[in-house]
Every structure is written in C-alpha cells, then in structure tokens.
Amino acid sequence: MTRRTTALTFALVLAAGGLDACRKKPEPQPAPAAVPVASAGEDHREDSGAAMAKRRADSIAAANTASVARTEEESKRTTAEMAQVLAQKVYFDYDRDVLRDDARAALDSKVPILVANGWVSLAITGHTDERGTAEYNLALGQRRAAQVKRYLEGKGITENRMTTQSMGDSQPAADGTDEAAYQLNRRAEFEFPSNGGALVRPRP
C-alpha cells in the first residue's frame, strides 16, 4: 500500500517535472551528478536513490508551483488594477455633455490600457441626475456617452471597440436631492467583458 502510494507519487512528480521541463528552457540536468553518489550503496541503493530523486523532484515542483502562483497572482493584481482605471467614472456639469478637465484626465489614463489590451471593448453608459424630464435626461445621457466615445476615438481607440447607451436618471449612483448626490449621478460609466481574460500593464 505504502509502496504503491510512493510509486504513484513518484510517477506524478516525474510527470510534473517532465511537464515543467517541457515548459521551461531545457537546462543542463544537474541530476546525474547526484546519482553516482547514490549508486555507491548496495541493497538500499535503489530505494535511497529513488528517495533522493523524489526529494529533488518535490522541491523543484514546489518551486515551480510557487512561481506559477506568483505569476498568476501578479497577473490578477495587474488585471484588477487596470480594470479599476478602465472602470473609473467620469463626471459632468448640470445639463452639459462637455468633458471637464477631470473627465479628460480620467479618460487619458484609460487610453494606454486600451491600446495595450487591444481585445478589450468598452460599453459606455451615460447617466444624469434626477432633475428635468425622464426623456430629456435619456437623451442627455446618450449625448454624454457619445461625447466620451468621441474623445477616446480622438485618442486613437477605434470606433468599433466602443458602444454607447443611456440610462438617463433611472439608475442614480447616490440617493439624495442635494448637489453632492446630483454630481455623483451626472456621470458616464464603463463596462468591459472580462471573460476571465487578463489585462496587461501598458509599457512605460
């Protein structure tokens, strides 16, 4: 039983090592140097040789797993960071679709990410505060989304990567009837299909 388990583990480790070896650049195998030492023994030679090989394989596998995990984690972190910049909302003045300086700055920070991640498409949704009529606000929200799209187009993002829509005043980001709430509601929001795909950091 123990023997079988050990053998199975060994096989798995070898297989894993083999896979890793395939993935990595072929390196000069340090293993042969150790084997002759192991072969010096007699009855236990085989066993101790296998054990040593296993220990070695185990440590390689562990190191590889850790490095894969590190890479994955870093990629996740980068993706989240880039996604946050892409999702950053831009805000508008009352009854206006003109992009203020803060809105331009927010859009400018998205551009290199969109350039570096050519597969990402952007859904832009315009919103308004509750004042005024529902219909006019829907039209105003559409104009805001269109203004954002036009600006990004001007920065080289191709038109077919972006869609626009308006929710008017129907989805406020903040409750309340004061200017602070209204300002949070006069906005354009950004969504992009992640599909689990990783975003890369633009080259500095």
């Binding site: 219909e135 039209a139 104009r143």
Partner: peptide
C-alpha cells in the same frame, strides 16, 4: 443602438413618432 424614447401615435393611429439617437 442608442436611445429610443418618447413615442406617440400619429393622430390617425397609423404610425408612431419617437426620439432616437446614437452618437449625434
């Protein structure tokens, strides 16, 4: 694409007038 809003029927009921726009 875009918005389709505020429809009303023609007075003879044969059609609808509505607001529509995408990026312009």
């Amino acid at each position: 694409n875009g918005v389709f809003i505020s429809p009303v029927y023609l007075p003879d009921g044969s059609g609808v007038v509505y607001g529509h726009g995408v990026d312009d």
